[in-house]
Design a binder for these strands. Structure first.
Lengths: 255, 255
DNA sequence: TATAGCCTATGACGTAAGGTAAGGGTCAAG
DNA sequence: CTTGACCCTTACCTTACGTCATAGGCTATA
């Protein structure tokens, strides 16, 4: 009898020694014997009781209630279990609601919100992307690049559509005006509008590093020769768009 | 601007003032202004942020993570939500398991375990029952009655079946032996067996008060003329059984 | 017999998200 | 000037342990 030390019992039942200490202090599971050195020794009876405790614990009963159940034989176990079942079902219902909310949120987010960082480089091989990122960071500063990435990410798919459409309009107009005077009012207007778009892209302030980053990113896409203007790759399209848009701006600055 | 005192904001958002204090200390929601008297004042911006906090809190996000989401715009909300959804689904699965365990336990308990206190008096009108209980308690002591009730409750349906069958056997035998010598070996044997059953019913010790309680309880059932030996009323059957069994015992004691 | 190596004990602090005071200032109205 | 409503900080309480820190106990081997 009384063979089990704390460690033995803890291993047997799969609980920690600390847990046994706690249960002792709470009066939930007292050792049958305390040696002279105050070592705790448990017997078979205690092992059995521990099993019961763990059964109820598994069911998420609070320890207090477990004590009440085990110590008061008149305790209405059936009612306790039924009450507990009801509580669990309520919790489950709540979780269902939460999951529903999350799913709804995810749908709107995915349709409507920013691109993921990795999406930005979608279409570029990972090595190239990391090389470019590192290079860009040393060249124009880590902050600048992070900011630029954040700027790109801040565009929703919807906005992307709008910007793309505007670009197409401008491109079409410019093409149509190709034959005429490059300093005509219409051409100037297109350039002005393009400038507006750049402002929007850069978040209102134009920083050379950022622009260069955008432009080279666009070139990378083209280099990798993977550009097929199908849907589903908004980041790539965005980059190409930026490349075109900024190219003109940078050129006009040089002149 | 900065119109909301702690109380106003707490009412507006449906949280406690303590919660606002806590969020302030955690840096999750700082008031926009502190008056000279260190009063907290919040503005519209803070109200908005609080709404967001509460949104994630509703989804059971820990406050730390909420802070991370709101303060780091690069935080991957989609991934966080998806991870959280997975965690919630796991919790739901666990609850399903728990509910299953409880249901199984309930089935075995209900088939196999003690009767409820009220079941003991099932078949007797409530007034009569309470009158009898009170009377019995004053007559034989509250403790005795509680103990007797506990004894009755400690019989499972299964045990009931066994006992009933034994009683039927004895009764049949006694009926068959009616015509012969009442002091014959067979009759004596039946009486002995009956005594064994009484011992089991009383938990090994025979107390007069307990026996009387059992006997009168059985009589009450008969008085109420409600005894129909259908299934589903084990307590009533038990009482009747005890009545018959104890009646003989008490009579034999008197002689 | 000394010591290394494991075992044990108690006590205390930390966790998450607040609840519940205690003790004491502040503000506006009557 | 008082009163009542409001506000402040500090601090302890909750659950079910995990994780030290400190100190003593037991046993085998050198």
């Amino acid at each position: 009898m009384d063979n089990y030390s704390v460690k033995k019992l803890s291993k047997l039942a799969g609980v920690s020694v600390r847990t046994l200490h706690l249960y002792d202090k709470l009066g939930l599971l007292k050792p049958s014997v305390r040696t002279e050195a105050r070592y705790r020794l448990y017997g078979e009876k205690e092992l059995l009781r521990l099993q019961q405790i763990l059964f109820y614990r598994e069911l998420d009963f609070p320890l207090k209630e477990i004590g009440a159940i085990l110590d008061d034989p008149a305790f209405d176990v059936v009612q306790a279990l039924e009450g507990h079942k009801k509580a669990l079902l309520a919790r489950k219902e709540r979780i269902n609601t939460l999951v529903g909310t999350i799913e709804k949120t995810l749908v709107t987010l995915k349709n409507n919100t920013m691109l993921q960082v990795e999406d930005l480089y979608d279409g570029i091989s990972r090595e190239k992307m990391e090389a470019y990122r590192t290079e860009a960071m040393t060249k124009w500063g880590k902050e600048t690049i992070l900011e630029a990435e954040e700027t790109l990410r801040s565009f929703s798919k919807e906005e992307m559509e709008t910007l793309k459409k505007e670009l197409n309009d401008i491109t079409a107009q410019l093409t149509a005006l190709m034959t005429g005077d490059p300093k005509s009012k219409e051409v100037q207007e297109c350039i002005a509008r393009r400038y507006q778009i750049i402002l929007r892209l850069t978040g209102g302030q134009i920083k050379t590093g950022k622009l260069e980053y955008f432009r080279k990113l666009g070139e990378l896409y083209v280099e990798d020769n993977r550009y097929t203007p199908v849907n589903g790759l908004p980041s790539m399209e965005l980059a190409l768009f930026i490349k075109e848009a900024t190219a003109h701006y940078v050129n006009s600055q040089k002149q």
